[in-house]
Each structure stands twice: as structure tokens, then as C-alpha cells.
Amino acid sequence: MSAESLILFFIVGAFLVGIALLFSSLVPPTSTNPQKAEAYECGIPTEGITWLQFNVGYYLFAIIFLVFDVETVFIFPWAVMMKTLGMKAFIEIVIFFFVLGIGLLYAWKKGALKWE
């Protein structure tokens, strides 16, 4: 089978969820109750709004991740072709990794790898 048939798996997956949701929304008995629709917070009504600006503390991680993820894309072709490219490419990739490592070390020393 070809890669186009991926669409099949997409459809089958969606079908599985869709049919079950449909069944579940039609067959089981339903009862409405305003308290049922409350968000669960250990039995206490929620105070304040939920979606407010949130200090997640991993923006820096996201940025470092972005850097590394892009770099991984560069590594993939080399990894596949490494045997044919030989020693020269290896030395080049060592230099590339060295630069990456310096970057990581810098971020580490700067304290970017800390969840605040």
C-alpha cells in the first residue's frame, strides 16, 4: 500500500471515535442538572475565571526545543547517509554537535533549564 492510504487510517480512527460518540450521545439515558455541568473542583464552585494568563515557566524550554528540533532535522539526512559520506561528514557533524553542545551548556549555565 502506498503512503496515500494514510487517509484510510485517518478515516478509520475518526470513524471509531465518531460512531462511539454518536452511540453514546443517543443511547444512554441523560438527565440534565445545572450542578452536573459545573467544572469539578473538589466539590467547591470554581472561583474566578479559569482561562487567565498563566505562568507556565517553560517558554525558555520551548525556545531551546525549537532550536534542537530544527537541528535534529539536519541530523536525519546525515544519519541515513552516514556510511557513504564517511569520515569527513563525521568530523563535520562532530563540529556541529559541539556547537549545539556549547549552546546547551550556555543555556544550562544561564539557568534557562530551570522551571520557575
Binding site: 473542583e41 473538589c42 466539590g43 472561583e47 474566578g48 487567565l52 494568563q53 498563566f54 505562568n55
Partner: peptide, 12 residues
């Protein structure tokens, strides 16, 4: 104001 209040309990 970005303080976030969460109830832990009574059913936790």
C-alpha cells in the same frame, strides 16, 4: 491579579 485559586479538597 494573575493569582490562580484552586481548591484542593474537600474531595481530593
Amino acid at each position: 491579579e494573575e493569582e490562580y485559586h484552586i481548591n484542593m479538597g474537600p474531595q481530593h
